[in-house]
């Protein structure tokens, strides 16, 4: 079937491209590992953690931020794919993709799924290295985290795709860093639990609570400890649908946003 054939081909292409660029894998791993092994070690002393779900005992700070760093991997991946589109690096291959005789939503879904799959591979490598440094989760949790990471990857990939269709010209990576990645990452439960944030500022805590990235992180965190978190899954799904719909609208040929950008 042509739909499935094309879907598989798009996934395959992204996987080959990813594996072919060793530098990209290394860069994608260095970032969260620096946070885990340097930042967390320094920060541990400053931050006291109480026992909050899904944890049943006191945990180290490294254990706490590991799911958040998985989320960070997905976040950077999603933004990177959108940036490569904005910068025209991928513009040609995107045009090629969009002239395939398939519905556009299917092609874009395949593209986002491929990105989520890359995120999953990076998270697996990251978790393996973390485990080698003694930062371990219950092993069935690693399996349970697979769908959670994929869902988070899809949602953040859809966000990236949406941004790529609406942002005409980004000055540089700093633009996305400042306005998307940093707020999303810091206004979330990735680095500190929400109750801690609430002590500092109820308003910020509320912002964290509506940030879909928070729910992506919590979804991964709970999955790693084999606990369901329907609220987080629901939020992530909802965000996926909103970003996905907006991305489809952005890439709707009748709108022609790509056109204004291209010519």
């Amino acid at each position: 079937m042509i739909w499935w054939l094309a879907f598989r081909a798009i996934l395959h292409r992204e996987a080959l491209r990813f594996l072919g660029q060793r530098g990209r894998l290394v860069a994608a791993l260095v970032r969260p590992l620096v946070w885990l092994l340097v930042f967390a070690a320094g920060f541990r002393a400053a931050l006291g953690l109480s026992i909050i779900p899904p944890y049943q005992t006191y945990i180290t700070y490294e254990i706490y931020i590991t799911p958040g760093l998985c989320g960070m991997i997905c976040l950077f991946n999603g933004m990177q794919s959108s940036l490569s589109l904005v910068y025209d690096r991928e513009m040609g291959s995107m045009r090629l993709l969009l002239t395939a005789p398939l519905p556009r939503w299917w092609l874009l879904l395949a593209k986002v799924t491929a990105g989520a799959m890359i995120s999953l591979l990076q998270c697996a490598a990251f978790l393996a290295i973390a485990a080698a440094f003694g930062i371990r989760m219950p092993w069935p949790g690693y399996i349970a985290a697979i769908p959670a990471i994929l869902l988070a990857g899809l949602m953040l990939g859809a966000l990236g795709l949406m941004l790529s269709s609406f942002i005409r010209q980004l000055e540089n990576f700093a633009g996305v860093m400042n306005f998307v990645i940093f707020p999303m990452f810091f206004l979330s439960s990735a680095l500190y639990p929400l109750w801690k944030m609430k002590e500092a500022s109820p308003l910020l805590a509320r912002l964290c609570a509506v940030n879909p990235f928070t729910h992506a992180v919590e979804l991964i965190r709970f999955a790693l400890y084999l606990q369901p978190n329907a609220a987080a899954a629901g939020w992530v799904l909802l965000a996926l649908m909103v970003f996905g719909t907006a991305a489809l609208w952005g890439y709707d040929p009748a709108r022609g946003m790509q056109a204004r950008k291209g010519s």
Binding site: I2, L5, A6, R8, A9, I10, H12, R13, L16, R17, G20, Q21, D88, M91, G92, S93, R95, L96, L97, T99, A100, P101, L102
Partner: peptide, 30 residues
């Protein structure tokens, strides 16, 4: 319709054969 775009649309890191197979699959040929 067959199209040759003005911008390059090949994956430089992939092999010649892979590039062609990718396109074939997009058009339902596997």
């Amino acid at each position: 319709m067959g199209v040759v775009f003005q911008q390059p649309t090949l994956d430089l890191d992939l092999t010649v054969r892979r590039n062609l197979l990718y396109f074939a699959a997009l058009h339902g040929i596997g």
